[in-house]
Amino acid sequence: MLKRVHFPPSVLPYLLVAPQIIITLVFFIWPASQALWQSMLVEDAFGLSTEFVWFENFQALFRDDQYIGAFKRTAFFSLAVAFVSMSFSLVLAGFADRVVRGAIVYRTLLIWPYAIAPVLAGALWVFMFNPTLGILAYGLEMLGYEWNHQLRGGQAMALVIMAASWKQVAYNFLFYLAAMQAIPRSVIEAAAIDGAGPIRRFWTIIFPLISPTTFFLLVINAVYAFFDTFGIIHAVTQGGPANATTILVYKVYNDGFVGLDLGGSAAQSVILMILVIAMTVLQFRYIERKVEY
Protein backbone atom coordinates (compact mmCIF):
# COMPACT_ATOMS: atom_id res chain seq x y z
CA MET A 1 0.00 0.00 0.00
CA LEU A 2 2.63 2.52 1.09
CA LYS A 3 6.23 2.65 -0.05
CA ARG A 4 8.93 1.56 2.40
CA VAL A 5 10.68 4.87 1.85
CA HIS A 6 8.75 8.06 1.45
CA PHE A 7 9.09 11.80 1.46
CA PRO A 8 9.27 13.73 4.72
CA PRO A 9 5.97 15.09 6.04
CA SER A 10 4.87 18.49 4.74
CA VAL A 11 1.73 20.20 3.43
CA LEU A 12 2.51 19.00 -0.08
CA PRO A 13 0.48 15.74 0.03
CA TYR A 14 -2.61 17.69 1.09
CA LEU A 15 -2.18 20.02 -1.86
CA LEU A 16 -1.76 17.03 -4.15
CA VAL A 17 -4.98 15.30 -3.11
CA ALA A 18 -6.89 18.58 -2.80
CA PRO A 19 -8.30 18.80 -6.37
CA GLN A 20 -9.61 15.25 -6.32
CA ILE A 21 -11.03 15.59 -2.80
CA ILE A 22 -12.70 18.95 -3.44
CA ILE A 23 -14.41 17.63 -6.58
CA THR A 24 -15.44 14.47 -4.77
CA LEU A 25 -16.92 16.48 -1.89
CA VAL A 26 -18.73 19.04 -4.04
CA PHE A 27 -20.03 16.79 -6.82
CA PHE A 28 -20.29 13.35 -5.21
CA ILE A 29 -20.55 13.31 -1.42
CA TRP A 30 -22.67 16.46 -1.09
CA PRO A 31 -25.23 15.54 -3.80
CA ALA A 32 -25.41 11.97 -2.52
CA SER A 33 -26.17 13.17 1.01
CA GLN A 34 -28.69 15.62 -0.46
CA ALA A 35 -30.37 12.70 -2.20
CA LEU A 36 -30.47 10.84 1.09
CA TRP A 37 -32.01 13.85 2.84
CA GLN A 38 -34.52 14.62 0.07
CA SER A 39 -35.58 11.00 -0.05
CA MET A 40 -37.10 11.54 3.40
CA LEU A 41 -38.95 14.75 2.52
CA VAL A 42 -42.37 15.32 1.01
CA GLU A 43 -43.11 18.56 -0.80
CA ASP A 44 -46.67 19.79 -1.18
CA ALA A 45 -48.17 20.31 -4.62
CA PHE A 46 -47.10 23.96 -4.86
CA GLY A 47 -43.57 23.51 -3.54
CA LEU A 48 -44.37 25.86 -0.62
CA SER A 49 -43.65 23.59 2.32
CA THR A 50 -41.76 20.39 2.91
CA GLU A 51 -42.24 17.83 5.61
CA PHE A 52 -39.83 15.28 7.00
CA VAL A 53 -41.42 11.88 6.67
CA TRP A 54 -38.68 9.32 7.43
CA PHE A 55 -39.04 6.31 5.12
CA GLU A 56 -42.50 7.06 3.73
CA ASN A 57 -41.16 7.75 0.23
CA PHE A 58 -39.53 4.33 0.20
CA GLN A 59 -42.65 2.64 1.49
CA ALA A 60 -44.67 4.44 -1.18
CA LEU A 61 -42.24 3.24 -3.84
CA PHE A 62 -42.51 -0.37 -2.84
CA ARG A 63 -46.27 -0.13 -2.79
CA ASP A 64 -46.24 1.45 -6.25
CA ASP A 65 -46.96 -1.16 -8.92
CA GLN A 66 -45.23 0.98 -11.53
CA TYR A 67 -41.99 1.00 -9.55
CA ILE A 68 -42.13 -2.73 -8.85
CA GLY A 69 -42.85 -3.21 -12.55
CA ALA A 70 -39.81 -1.10 -13.47
CA PHE A 71 -37.69 -3.18 -11.10
CA LYS A 72 -38.75 -6.46 -12.66
CA ARG A 73 -38.37 -5.02 -16.14
CA THR A 74 -34.82 -3.85 -15.36
CA ALA A 75 -33.91 -7.29 -14.05
CA PHE A 76 -35.29 -8.93 -17.18
CA PHE A 77 -33.61 -6.37 -19.44
CA SER A 78 -30.20 -6.82 -17.76
CA LEU A 79 -30.34 -10.61 -17.89
CA ALA A 80 -31.47 -10.55 -21.52
CA VAL A 81 -28.72 -8.11 -22.55
CA ALA A 82 -26.08 -10.12 -20.66
CA PHE A 83 -27.28 -13.40 -22.16
CA VAL A 84 -27.63 -12.24 -25.79
CA SER A 85 -24.41 -10.26 -25.81
CA MET A 86 -22.29 -12.81 -23.93
CA SER A 87 -23.42 -15.86 -25.88
CA PHE A 88 -22.88 -14.09 -29.20
CA SER A 89 -19.40 -13.01 -28.09
CA LEU A 90 -18.58 -16.45 -26.70
CA VAL A 91 -19.33 -18.11 -30.04
CA LEU A 92 -17.29 -15.55 -31.96
CA ALA A 93 -14.37 -15.70 -29.51
CA GLY A 94 -14.43 -19.51 -29.60
CA PHE A 95 -14.02 -19.43 -33.37
CA ALA A 96 -11.55 -16.53 -33.38
CA ASP A 97 -9.39 -18.47 -30.92
CA ARG A 98 -9.00 -21.16 -33.62
CA VAL A 99 -7.77 -18.73 -36.25
CA VAL A 100 -4.00 -18.91 -36.56
CA ARG A 101 -3.37 -16.00 -38.88
CA GLY A 102 -5.54 -12.91 -39.12
CA ALA A 103 -6.99 -13.13 -35.61
CA ILE A 104 -6.01 -9.51 -35.05
CA VAL A 105 -7.94 -8.46 -38.17
CA TYR A 106 -11.08 -10.14 -36.88
CA ARG A 107 -10.54 -8.53 -33.50
CA THR A 108 -10.26 -5.08 -35.07
CA LEU A 109 -13.46 -5.60 -37.04
CA LEU A 110 -15.37 -6.74 -33.96
CA ILE A 111 -14.30 -4.33 -31.23
CA TRP A 112 -15.09 -0.89 -32.61
CA PRO A 113 -18.79 -0.72 -31.59
CA TYR A 114 -17.40 -0.21 -28.08
CA ALA A 115 -16.61 3.35 -29.11
CA ILE A 116 -20.16 4.22 -30.14
CA ALA A 117 -22.27 6.18 -27.65
CA PRO A 118 -25.37 4.33 -26.37
CA VAL A 119 -27.68 7.03 -27.70
CA LEU A 120 -26.12 6.65 -31.17
CA ALA A 121 -26.49 2.87 -31.01
CA GLY A 122 -30.13 3.50 -30.20
CA ALA A 123 -30.49 5.90 -33.14
CA LEU A 124 -29.03 3.39 -35.61
CA TRP A 125 -31.33 0.59 -34.46
CA VAL A 126 -34.44 2.73 -34.33
CA PHE A 127 -33.70 3.83 -37.90
CA MET A 128 -33.42 0.23 -39.12
CA PHE A 129 -36.66 -0.68 -37.38
CA ASN A 130 -38.61 2.51 -38.13
CA PRO A 131 -42.15 1.15 -38.77
CA THR A 132 -42.76 3.19 -41.92
CA LEU A 133 -39.26 3.45 -43.42
CA GLY A 134 -36.88 1.07 -41.67
CA ILE A 135 -35.14 -1.47 -43.82
CA LEU A 136 -35.50 -4.34 -41.35
CA ALA A 137 -39.11 -3.49 -40.52
CA TYR A 138 -39.73 -3.60 -44.28
CA GLY A 139 -37.99 -6.97 -44.53
CA LEU A 140 -40.07 -8.38 -41.68
CA GLU A 141 -43.22 -7.14 -43.35
CA MET A 142 -42.21 -8.96 -46.56
CA LEU A 143 -41.99 -12.10 -44.43
CA GLY A 144 -45.49 -11.44 -43.12
CA TYR A 145 -44.51 -10.14 -39.67
CA GLU A 146 -45.82 -6.75 -38.71
CA TRP A 147 -43.30 -4.63 -36.81
CA ASN A 148 -44.33 -1.56 -34.87
CA HIS A 149 -42.36 -1.01 -31.71
CA GLN A 150 -44.14 2.31 -31.17
CA LEU A 151 -47.33 0.41 -30.42
CA ARG A 152 -46.21 -3.00 -29.17
CA GLY A 153 -44.40 -3.21 -25.85
CA GLY A 154 -42.81 -6.60 -26.50
CA GLN A 155 -41.26 -5.42 -29.74
CA ALA A 156 -40.02 -2.21 -28.10
CA MET A 157 -38.31 -4.28 -25.41
CA ALA A 158 -36.78 -6.58 -28.04
CA LEU A 159 -35.44 -3.54 -29.90
CA VAL A 160 -33.72 -1.96 -26.89
CA ILE A 161 -32.27 -5.36 -25.92
CA MET A 162 -30.84 -5.77 -29.43
CA ALA A 163 -29.35 -2.27 -29.48
CA ALA A 164 -27.85 -2.63 -25.99
CA SER A 165 -26.42 -6.11 -26.69
CA TRP A 166 -24.98 -5.06 -30.03
CA LYS A 167 -22.91 -2.34 -28.37
CA GLN A 168 -21.63 -4.64 -25.62
CA VAL A 169 -20.50 -7.51 -27.90
CA ALA A 170 -17.14 -5.80 -28.46
CA TYR A 171 -16.27 -5.70 -24.77
CA ASN A 172 -17.31 -9.29 -24.06
CA PHE A 173 -15.53 -10.57 -27.14
CA LEU A 174 -12.27 -8.91 -26.12
CA PHE A 175 -12.30 -10.41 -22.64
CA TYR A 176 -13.40 -13.88 -23.80
CA LEU A 177 -10.73 -14.00 -26.49
CA ALA A 178 -8.02 -12.92 -24.03
CA ALA A 179 -9.17 -15.57 -21.53
CA MET A 180 -9.15 -18.32 -24.17
CA GLN A 181 -5.73 -17.35 -25.45
CA ALA A 182 -4.37 -17.54 -21.91
CA ILE A 183 -5.23 -21.27 -21.68
CA PRO A 184 -2.01 -23.30 -22.11
CA ARG A 185 -1.96 -24.95 -25.54
CA SER A 186 -0.59 -28.17 -24.00
CA VAL A 187 -3.89 -28.81 -22.18
CA ILE A 188 -5.86 -28.55 -25.40
CA GLU A 189 -3.34 -30.62 -27.34
CA ALA A 190 -3.46 -33.36 -24.71
CA ALA A 191 -7.24 -33.54 -25.07
CA ALA A 192 -6.92 -33.63 -28.86
CA ILE A 193 -4.47 -36.56 -28.64
CA ASP A 194 -6.95 -38.39 -26.40
CA GLY A 195 -9.42 -38.03 -29.25
CA ALA A 196 -11.66 -35.17 -28.07
CA GLY A 197 -13.09 -33.21 -31.01
CA PRO A 198 -13.27 -29.41 -31.14
CA ILE A 199 -16.82 -29.17 -29.70
CA ARG A 200 -16.10 -31.61 -26.88
CA ARG A 201 -12.87 -29.73 -26.08
CA PHE A 202 -14.77 -26.47 -25.95
CA TRP A 203 -17.37 -27.68 -23.47
CA THR A 204 -15.16 -29.83 -21.26
CA ILE A 205 -11.95 -27.78 -21.19
CA ILE A 206 -12.21 -24.25 -22.54
CA PHE A 207 -15.61 -23.29 -21.13
CA PRO A 208 -14.89 -24.44 -17.53
CA LEU A 209 -11.46 -22.78 -17.58
CA ILE A 210 -12.86 -19.40 -18.60
CA SER A 211 -15.70 -19.49 -16.04
CA PRO A 212 -14.08 -16.72 -13.91
CA THR A 213 -14.25 -14.48 -16.99
CA THR A 214 -17.88 -15.44 -17.51
CA PHE A 215 -18.73 -14.45 -13.96
CA PHE A 216 -16.80 -11.21 -14.23
CA LEU A 217 -18.55 -10.34 -17.50
CA LEU A 218 -21.93 -11.15 -15.99
CA VAL A 219 -21.40 -8.49 -13.32
CA ILE A 220 -20.01 -5.96 -15.82
CA ASN A 221 -22.90 -6.54 -18.23
CA ALA A 222 -25.47 -6.21 -15.46
CA VAL A 223 -23.93 -2.89 -14.37
CA TYR A 224 -23.85 -1.76 -18.00
CA ALA A 225 -27.50 -2.66 -18.60
CA PHE A 226 -28.57 -1.04 -15.33
CA PHE A 227 -26.81 2.29 -15.66
CA ASP A 228 -25.29 2.89 -19.10
CA THR A 229 -28.31 2.21 -21.26
CA PHE A 230 -30.17 5.43 -20.47
CA GLY A 231 -29.22 6.85 -23.87
CA ILE A 232 -30.57 3.83 -25.72
CA ILE A 233 -33.94 3.96 -23.96
CA HIS A 234 -34.17 7.72 -24.35
CA ALA A 235 -33.46 7.60 -28.09
CA VAL A 236 -35.44 4.48 -29.01
CA THR A 237 -38.62 4.38 -26.93
CA GLN A 238 -38.61 7.09 -24.21
CA GLY A 239 -39.71 4.33 -21.87
CA GLY A 240 -42.83 3.60 -23.90
CA PRO A 241 -45.15 2.35 -25.22
CA ALA A 242 -47.13 2.45 -21.95
CA ASN A 243 -43.96 2.13 -19.83
CA ALA A 244 -43.03 -1.17 -21.50
CA THR A 245 -39.33 -0.15 -21.57
CA THR A 246 -39.11 2.11 -18.50
CA ILE A 247 -36.11 0.80 -16.62
CA LEU A 248 -34.93 2.17 -13.26
CA VAL A 249 -32.42 4.80 -14.48
CA TYR A 250 -34.96 6.07 -16.95
CA LYS A 251 -37.59 6.31 -14.22
CA VAL A 252 -35.27 8.31 -11.91
CA TYR A 253 -34.71 10.81 -14.70
CA ASN A 254 -38.34 10.90 -15.75
CA ASP A 255 -39.80 11.29 -12.26
CA GLY A 256 -37.19 13.87 -11.27
CA PHE A 257 -36.93 16.10 -14.33
CA VAL A 258 -40.20 15.53 -16.17
CA GLY A 259 -42.55 14.57 -13.32
CA LEU A 260 -40.79 16.86 -10.78
CA ASP A 261 -41.43 14.42 -7.94
CA LEU A 262 -38.22 15.24 -6.06
CA GLY A 263 -38.77 13.10 -2.97
CA GLY A 264 -39.73 10.03 -4.97
CA SER A 265 -36.88 10.52 -7.43
CA ALA A 266 -34.39 10.96 -4.57
CA ALA A 267 -35.63 7.77 -2.91
CA GLN A 268 -35.13 5.97 -6.22
CA SER A 269 -31.60 7.43 -6.41
CA VAL A 270 -30.81 6.05 -2.96
CA ILE A 271 -32.05 2.59 -3.95
CA LEU A 272 -29.92 2.71 -7.11
CA MET A 273 -26.87 3.73 -5.07
CA ILE A 274 -27.36 0.72 -2.82
CA LEU A 275 -27.59 -1.48 -5.91
CA VAL A 276 -24.35 -0.04 -7.34
CA ILE A 277 -22.57 -0.58 -4.04
CA ALA A 278 -23.75 -4.20 -3.94
CA MET A 279 -22.55 -4.79 -7.50
CA THR A 280 -19.19 -3.12 -6.84
CA VAL A 281 -18.63 -5.29 -3.78
CA LEU A 282 -19.48 -8.37 -5.86
CA GLN A 283 -16.99 -7.31 -8.51
CA PHE A 284 -14.23 -6.74 -5.95
CA ARG A 285 -14.81 -10.07 -4.27
CA TYR A 286 -14.39 -11.72 -7.63
CA ILE A 287 -11.13 -9.85 -8.25
CA GLU A 288 -9.77 -10.84 -4.84
CA ARG A 289 -10.50 -14.46 -5.68
CA LYS A 290 -8.72 -14.11 -8.99
CA VAL A 291 -5.58 -12.85 -7.25
CA GLU A 292 -5.46 -16.01 -5.14
CA TYR A 293 -5.33 -18.25 -8.21
Binding site: A35, G256, F257, S269, V276
Partner: peptide, 12 residues
Amino acid sequence: TLMLPVEVRIVP
Protein backbone atom coordinates in the same frame (compact mmCIF):
# COMPACT_ATOMS: atom_id res chain seq x y z
CA THR B 1 -16.85 8.04 -6.27
CA LEU B 2 -16.58 4.65 -7.95
CA MET B 3 -19.96 3.76 -6.50
CA LEU B 4 -21.90 6.86 -7.46
CA PRO B 5 -22.37 7.16 -11.23
CA VAL B 6 -24.07 10.34 -12.47
CA GLU B 7 -27.15 8.38 -13.43
CA VAL B 8 -28.08 7.61 -9.83
CA ARG B 9 -27.68 11.10 -8.38
CA ILE B 10 -28.76 13.33 -11.22
CA VAL B 11 -31.22 15.64 -9.49
CA PRO B 12 -29.01 16.74 -6.54
